[in-house]
Simulated scan of single mutants.
Amino acid sequence: MRLRKRSDALDVLRAQPELVPQQPETTCGQWSKGSPLHVELGTGKGQFLNQLAEKYPSIQFVGMEKYESVLATAVERNDGHEQNLRFIHGDVAHVEDYFSEGEIDRIYLNFTDPWPKKKHAKRRLTFPTFLYLYKRVLSPTGDIHLKTDNEDFFTYSLMSFSQHGYHLRNLTFNLHENEPEDNVRTEYEQKFAARGQRIFRVEAYPANEC
């Protein structure tokens, strides 16, 4: 999908420093405010996270997105309404710059780019390099919730999780066949569901190392 570039995107992000900290690395270790901290990596236009923040006011939510034109839309959707939601304009590869060790209770990976070509495998957000980073920032009871419409990426992710110190649970190859009442659909998920496409989902959590 071609990214539509917005000339005003950076101005939108800079106009709300409470929602989009201009130096997010200075907030490292302080995001949770004593509450559970859930982070969506690659938050896109923010529909999913804005809904979660409204539904669960006792949880702190952070959305990370590297494309300012996309993140600007997420910020506009919130417009300061949900006080338990903030955003980071940054790259997932630098997640350790923004969150301290064990700070995050849940990571969401929703419909991230599957990078289907083998030569681009290192860019997949379930590549071992990223899984190692997630282990560092996840709390001892933390987990990862992954949803995708791409079966090849899903299969790859299951193998990657399993081979690099994660356990799996609540695995489904057709989420909407018996959709849980608490499932919050992303923008992509709504589009795919309307086309009758299957949605794949799994929860992964680091194995306890003794």
Rank of each mutant, 00 (worst) to 15 (best):
R2F: 09
L3W: 12
K5F: 04
S7G: 05
L13S: 03
R14V: 10
A15C: 13
P17A: 13
E18Q: 07
L19D: 08
L19K: 07
P21V: 02
P21C: 03
Q23S: 11
T27V: 10
Q30V: 15
W31S: 09
H38S: 13
L41Y: 04
L49D: 02
Q51D: 03
Q51A: 00
L52Y: 05
A53G: 06
E54S: 13
E54Q: 15
S58H: 10
S58N: 14
V62K: 07
V62G: 02
A72Y: 01
A74N: 00
A74W: 01
V75L: 06
V75A: 03
V75D: 07
E76W: 04
E76Q: 08
N78T: 07
N78H: 06
D79Y: 11
R86T: 05
V92K: 02
A93R: 12
A93G: 11
E96N: 05
N110Q: 11
P114H: 04
W115N: 10
P116N: 13
K117W: 14
K118D: 14
A121I: 07
A121E: 15
R124C: 09
L125K: 10
F127W: 15
P128V: 09
T129L: 12
F130I: 07
L133S: 08
L133M: 09
R136I: 08
R136S: 14
L138M: 11
K147C: 06
D149M: 08
D149N: 13
E151V: 01
D152V: 11
F153K: 05
L158R: 05
L168S: 09
H176T: 10
E179C: 13
N183S: 04
V184F: 01
R185T: 02
T186G: 02
K191C: 00
F192I: 02
F192M: 05
F192S: 03
A193P: 00
A193R: 00
Q197E: 03
F200G: 00
N208E: 14
